[in-house]
């Protein structure tokens, strides 16, 4: 891990009317690090994800990203083309509902290959081979490459979305409740897959989840949010096993033990 942050935010503020979504939020992410943002719904965690990824503007504050060449860019001052280019190459976004990201009328191979084609790949055979390689990475049989996603189960759709996102080897992936819509039995396998891929490719990730168990298994570090405020942040197991803030203690003690 480098000592220079990949992504940094300072002083983010955003209110929806009188409702605080972000209150003086600072955040840092280092290369290869997985940061979980936890909190109940309405805590501002998804808003933070959208602001960090440049999909939503804050009312004040700044988000910096350090690109592969080491240049630092203000994410919200970036020209639209650069930001969009970033989103389809160096960054990825994994949605809770894979249908929001996938093209349901396009084959699995076309879905995975799209980012490659957007980057200028113009060799059908290479694109297809790479798509198959990525389907295998996410444990989807290679012979499903020509199938439409609508024939896939929920867990497979989520894995397909991950393949589609990671095919360009992004350095930074934003994930919004990636296991949220899935059966518990499918969640575990997906968690293990995400953890393996993130570790193997050294991907940094900002992971929004309300599920503390997901944070524990995937994240190096957690940020606990309550009503737009980051009330506690630190090493994942330390925050979960030795919570300091009253809200974190409440959150941790509210989890059902299986």
């Amino acid at each position: 891990m480098s000592d220079e942050t990949l992504l940094s935010a300072r002083g983010l503020n955003l209110h929806f009317g009188t409702i605080p979504a972000l209150v003086n939020v600072d955040a840092d992410l280092w290369p290869g690090e997985v940061l979980a943002v936890v909190g109940e719904s309405g805590s501002g965690k998804t808003t933070l994800l959208n602001v960090l990824s440049g999909r939503m503007a804050a009312q004040s504050g700044v988000v910096w990203y350090r690109d592969t060449a080491g240049r630092i860019a203000d994410v919200h001052a970036m020209p639209q083309p650069s930001l969009r280019a970033l989103h389809r190459s160096d960054w990825g976004f994994v949605q809770q509902n894979p249908r929001d990201n996938l093209r349901m009328g396009v084959t699995a191979g076309g879905n995975v290959g799209e980012r490659l084609m957007a980057q200028g790949s113009r060799h059908y055979g290479d694109i297809r081979a790479e798509a198959i390689r990525w389907l295998e990475q996410v444990e989807i049989d290679a012979d499903r490459v020509d199938d439409l996603p609508r024939t896939f189960s929920g867990g497979m759709l989520q894995r397909l979305q991950i393949a589609r996102t990671l095919v360009t080897h992004p350095r930074l992936v934003f994930m919004d409740e990636p296991t949220g819509g899935l059966d518990v039995s499918v969640q575990a396998r997906l968690l293990d897959l995400i953890r393996g891929l993130v570790a193997r490719f050294g991907i940094a990730a900002v992971l929004v989840t309300h599920d503390l168990a997901v944070a524990r298994l995937l994240a190096h570090r957690v940020m606990v949010m309550q009503r737009g405020v980051v009330v506690e942040t630190g090493l994942t197991d330390q925050v979960l096993d030795d919570p300091q803030h009253p809200y974190t203690q409440l959150l941790v003690s509210s989890v059902l033990q299986a």
């Binding site: 191979g109 076309g110 084609m117 957007a118 980057q119 059908y124 297809r128 020509d146």
Partner: peptide
């Protein structure tokens, strides 16, 4: 505006696949 035409190639990819 941004010359993002990857999607058109997705259409061609799908044709070749099918």
């Amino acid at each position: 505006g941004l010359a993002e035409y990857g999607l058109m190639h997705v259409k061609l990819y799908e044709d070749i696949t099918r």
